[in-house]
Amino acid sequence: MNLFRILGDVSHLLAMILLLGKIWRSKSCRGISGKSQALFALVFTTRYLDLFTNFISLYNTVMKVIFLLCSYVTVYMIYWKFWKSFDSENDTFRLEFLLVPVTGLSFLENYSFTPLEILWTFSIYLESVAILPQLFMISKTGEAETITTHYLFFLGLYRALYLANWIWRYHTENFYDQIAVVSGVVQTIFYCDFFYLYVTKGRCQGRVE
C-alpha cells in the first residue's frame, strides 16, 4: 500500500459520496447518467466476487463493501426513489457499444482463462469506459451542475492517482499489472477533456457550460 493508492481510494470514495449526497440532498438525479452508474455497479460486482473467498486485508474488504453499497444505493436512487427526476431522454448512450467489445476483449486478453479472472478482466475493461454515458450526456445537454463536475473530477483523479501508484509499485516492488495499467491510461485519457473544462470553466458559479 502506498500514498498514491490511498489517495486514489479516498478520491474514489469521495466522488461516490459527493454524488450520493447531491442526489439525496436535492432529491433529484437531474443531469446524472443512470447508465454510467449501472455500469459502475456492474464493475464492482464483477470485480469483487472474491470478497468472501480471498481475504487480503480488513481495509480491502471494508472498502469493497462500501464501494458496492454506494454504487447500488446510487442506482436505486436514480431508477427507483427519484426516478421522476431522471432525464432518460438525455441518457441515450448505447450500452451495447461498450458491453460487447469489453466482453469480447476480456475473453481474448486476460491473465488466465478462469471465470473469476475473466470477470475481473471484464470489470477492468468496463471501468475504463463506464463514464462515457455520463460524459456523453453532459456533452448533449451542454451543461453540468457544479457538484456533478466535482464528482467527475475526483472520479478522474482516482485513476490518475492509481497510475502514479503503478509507477511507484513498478519501481519499488517491480510490480506490473499490464491489463490494469493500459485500461487505467485509457480511462484517464477520457477525463482529460473534462479536466480541461473543469479547470478553465470550473470557476463560473452554478453550472459548467
Binding site: I56, S57, N60, K64, Y111, D177
Partner: peptide, 10 residues
C-alpha cells in the same frame, strides 16, 4: 503472469 494473482487493489 505480470499481474498479481490476488488482485490486491480495489
Amino acid at each position: 503472469f505480470p499481474g498479481d494473482p490476488d488482485h490486491d487493489e480495489l
